[in-house]
């Protein structure tokens, strides 16, 4: 028996219905109603993975904003690297250990890190909590490590696990 989480379920239904209406591309009564019925059916039947833990909207926005900023700055730096005739790339694969509590958010971190040009996850070891990152510029290693830990901190703040919530 899953615990009732009213706000969470409402958000889920609203998001699903909004996606449905968006896919149809017009905001008509029939689309909204159809979307709501489908959303209630889907979440009621328990299709998909049941998420654990909560979502804090404002830290989540902060995380998304940070990823967006990274996207812009790192795209610029890779664009400069491509457009200038000198080749300053010096590639390396480095291990970045993560704090234990960050492992809940492994996938989120992998997506955020791989999305930004210049860094990519080659492999991840969930047992030891180590990310193996490929860097285009090895001299930025320290900056990248700080950056990964910053992302991990933001992810933990945005999506607290059940255990952390009961403490807080």
């Amino acid at each position: 028996m899953r615990r009732p989480r009213t706000i969470r379920d409402l958000t889920m239904v609203t998001a699903l219905a909004a996606t449905w209406v968006g896919l149809w591309g017009s905001f008509s009564a029939a689309n909204v109603l159809g979307g709501l019925v489908l959303a209630v059916l889907v979440s009621g039947l328990g299709v998909g993975t049941s998420g654990r833990g909560g979502i804090r909207p404002i830290p989540l926005m902060r995380l998304l904003w940070r990823v967006l900023l990274d996207l812009v700055t790192s795209t610029l730096s890779v664009a400069v690297e491509i457009a200038t005739p000198t080749d300053r790339t010096e590639e390396a694969i480095v291990a970045v250990p993560l704090p234990v509590e960050s492992r809940q958010h492994f996938l989120l971190l992998i997506v955020a890190i791989t999305l930004t040009p210049g860094t990519a996850v080659v492999d991840a070891d969930p047992d030891t909590g180590t990310l193996y990152l490929h860097l285009l510029h090895v001299d930025r290693r320290m900056a990248v490590e700080t950056h990964v830990h910053e992302l991990a901190r933001l992810a933990r703040a945005a999506l607290p696990t059940d255990a952390e919530r009961s403490i807080a």
């Binding site: 996207l71 812009v72 795209t75 890779v78 664009a79 690297e81 491509i82 457009a83 080749d87 790339t89 590639e91 791989t114 999305l115 930004t116 040009p117 210049g118 990519a120 490929h134 285009l136």
Partner: peptide
């Protein structure tokens, strides 16, 4: 990103240019 595909000479660097500039 396309120019990067031609200019970079390792597989990894090419992924950085092509695979990740495309969402941007």
């Amino acid at each position: 990103a396309g120019v990067g595909l031609l200019r970079f000479d390792t597989n990894y660097a090419r992924f950085h240019a092509a695979g990740k500039a495309s969402p941007v």
